[in-house]
Design a binder for these strands. Structure first.
Length: 249
DNA sequence: AACCCAGTGATTGACGCCGC
DNA sequence: GCGGCGTCAATCACTGGGTT
C-alpha cells in the first residue's frame, strides 16, 4: 500500500535563528541568506524552538503576502540522537486531515461520508467554528451530522503525543461545545500528530489540567477520539496510522 | 447571476508604556 | 522593579458592496 497522503514541491532547508513577535521567525538558508518566514503556529511550540535546529520552509509567490516564506517543519533530536521532522503549520494540519477524510481513511470509524464543509459556525453564541462538518451518506445507518475538531499535536513526552502544550481557553471551549452538540450530532476530536516518534496520544494535563478534565468529560459523554499520525518529509507526507489513547502516562 | 476586491475578525506571544 | 493593560505582528477565510 502506498501510504503517501500528500505530495508537494520540495521545501527549502535552513536553520532556525529565532522566533519572535508571534508570527515571525528568522531563518538562515543553506546558501547563507537570512530570511524572515511567517510562523503559522499559534502556540508556544514546546520543545521545538531550538536555535540552530534544521527547518524547512515553503515559498509563496502571492503578491498579497508581505512575507514570501512560511515555516513548515522543524527537526528535533531524540534521546538516542535520532532525528525526527515535526510539522508546525497548523493550517496545513487541517488540510492534511481533510485529505485523510476525502481518501476515506476514516471509513471504519465514521462510515461513508456524503459532504465535507469547512469552518462552519456553531456553538452557543455561534462564535465558534468547527473545523469540519460532515454529512453521512444516506446509506449510513447512523445519519447524524459529524462535528470534527482538528488539533495540531507536536508536543511529546516519552512515547506519548500530547495536546495541548499550554493553557488553551479556546481548546477548552471547543471541548465544551463538542460535548454540547451530542447526542443529536456526533463529536470527533482528531489530534493531528505531526511526528512519527510516538506510540500513544494523551491529554496534556501538565500544561492545562482543566483541558484534561474537560477532555475526559467529553470522552465519557461519547466524543470519538481519532489520533492520526504522520511522518513529514521534504516533499511529501506519509500516513502512520491511528494511535491509541493513553491516560495518566 | 457571477465575479472581484477591499475590509475585517480570529489567532496569541512579545513588548512598551503607565502607574505605583 | 514590577504588574497590568493595550497594541502589534502576518495570514487566511469570510463578508459585503460594487461592477460587469
Amino acid at each position: 500500500m502506498d501510504d503517501r497522503i500528500i505530495n508537494f514541491e520540495p521545501l527549502i532547508e535552513g536553520v532556525l535563528i529565532k522566533r519572535y513577535k508571534r508570527f515571525l521567525s528568522d531563518i538562515k538558508l543553506d546558501n547563507g541568506e537570512i530570511v524572515t518566514a511567517h510562523c503559522a503556529n499559534t502556540g508556544p511550540m514546546k520543545g521545538l524552538l531550538n536555535e540552530g535546529a534544521k527547518v524547512r520552509i515553503s515559498y509563496s509567490s502571492s503578491p498579497k503576502r508581505k512575507l514570501s516564506w512560511t515555516w513548515e517543519q522543524v527537526e528535533v533530536t531524540g534521546i538516542n540522537n535520532e532525528k525526527v521532522w515535526v510539522g508546525i503549520n497548523t493550517l496545513f494540519a487541517n488540510k492534511l486531515i481533510k485529505t485523510v477524510i476525502e481518501k476515506n481513511l476514516l471509513k471504519d470509524k465514521l462510515g461513508d461520508i456524503a459532504t465535507i464543509q469547512s469552518e462552519v459556525v456553531y456553538g452557543q453564541d455561534k462564535k465558534s467554528r468547527i473545523d469540519f462538518l460532515l454529512t453521512p451518506k444516506i446509506s449510513n445507518p447512523d445519519n447524524r451530522k459529524i462535528f470534527i475538531e482538528v488539533k495540531n499535536t507536536t508536543w511529546k513526552k516519552n512515547k506519548i503525543a500530547l495536546f495541548p502544550d499550554t493553557e488553551t481557553k479556546r481548546g477548552q471551549k471547543h471541548l465544551i461545545e463538542l460535548k454540547g452538540v451530542m447526542p443529536e450530532s456526533k463529536s470527533v476530536l482528531v489530534p493531528c500528530i505531526t511526528r512519527k516518534d510516538v506510540d500513544f496520544f494523551g491529554p496534556g494535563d501538565e500544561a492545562d489540567p482543566i483541558y484534561g478534565d474537560l477532555f475526559r468529560d467529553s470522552i465519557d459523554a461519547g466524543m470519538l477520539l481519532i489520533p492520526c499520525c504522520f511522518e513529514f518529509h521534504k516533499d511529501h507526507i506519509t500516513w502512520k496510522g491511528f494511535k491509541p489513547l493513553k491516560l495518566d502516562g
